[in-house]
């Protein structure tokens, strides 16, 4: 009765044999090519172990001696985050309406989308350098940067929400003879409001995270304090700052998660 086959192979992920081998070959070539072409100074890397020892040796124990500086830096980051969230969310609402396919006329839709794409594509640190050059060092550049950053996220998510709304409610309002603004207030805002509040709180959390790094290129806040400490080889102070940043991020994440859960 044993005429049953005694071999079996799992069907390959890519059915076409040639394509499969081409993919394998491509991956291997890529790895070899990148490995060979990367400008890596191996001697310098090999030195790293000794340096790592020195850095971590210098970092422990963390020094909270200059806690005044630390607190000032942190408070500035917090202010930057708050103002940027308020400004960013306020600007996001009209931009989101512009970028919602079901509401905006086509040219405005493209304009809205373009703003969002540009705001999303540039890492906040890049935006920060440009603002620092344009408006000078300090927290104002940081606020502007994070406003752009907030628009990239909040306006995008909000536009998607607006595109998903139940249009029947808008029609009902129009059928009742409501003017444009009332339609907005009664038929669209209630549908996007919960999302909007959740997004704002989430964005405040993200902005606090980001505000810690834009300072590294001169846009104010605790990042500037950190970059200074690193530049002066004050690794123990740098570690203290990092601990504070991590702690603040964890707290803010916890609080924002809690509020968003309660709002539902």
């Amino acid at each position: 009765m044993s005429d049953a086959p005694d071999t079996w192979r799992k069907p390959p992920f890519i059915a076409n044999r040639w394509l499969r081998w081409a993919v394998y070959l491509g991956v291997i070539t890529y790895i070899v090519w990148v490995g060979a072409s990367m400008p890596i100074n191996w001697e310098r890397v090999a030195d790293g172990l000794g340096r790592a020892k020195r850095i971590f040796g210098g970092a422990f124990p963390p020094s909270f001696e200059r806690s005044g500086l630390l607190i000032d830096g942190f408070l500035e980051s917090l202010k930057i985050a708050l103002l940027a969230t308020a400004g960013g969310v306020a600007l996001s609402i009209p931009i989101a309406f512009m970028a919602a396919r079901n509401i905006a006329p086509l040219p405005i839709y493209y304009l809205g989308r373009a703003i969002i794409i540009i705001a999303r594509s540039f890492h906040p640190v890049i935006v920060a350098i440009i603002f620092v050059k344009a408006v000078g060092f300090g927290p104002f550049a940081g606020v502007l940067t994070l406003i752009v950053y907030s628009i990239g996220f909040v306006a995008k998510m909000l536009a998607e929400r607006i595109e998903e709304i139940d249009f029947g409610q808008v029609e009902a309002m129009r059928a009742a003879g409501a003017p444009y603004l009332s339609t907005l207030v009664y038929a669209i805002f209630p549908q996007i409001m919960p999302r909007q509040i959740g997004l704002s709180i989430y964005q405040l959390d993200s902005n606090l995270r980001a505000s810690a790094v834009v300072g590294i290129v001169g846009a104010g806040g605790i990042g500037a304090t950190l970059a200074n400490a690193f530049g002066r080889y004050d690794y123990d102070f740098a570690l203290a700052i990092t601990i504070v940043i991590v702690g603040a991020i964890l707290i803010s994440e916890g609080v924002s998660g809690m509020i968003r859960k309660r709002i539902g």
Binding site: V45, D47, R51, I55, A212, I216, L226, T242, I245
Partner: peptide, 18 residues
């Protein structure tokens, strides 16, 4: 919790720029 840039600062200090 540690941002990429901060990680980068640390690794540049250890392994040098690159």
């Amino acid at each position: 919790s540690v941002n990429t840039i901060i990680w980068a600062l640390l690794f540049v200090a250890i392994f040098g720029p690159g």
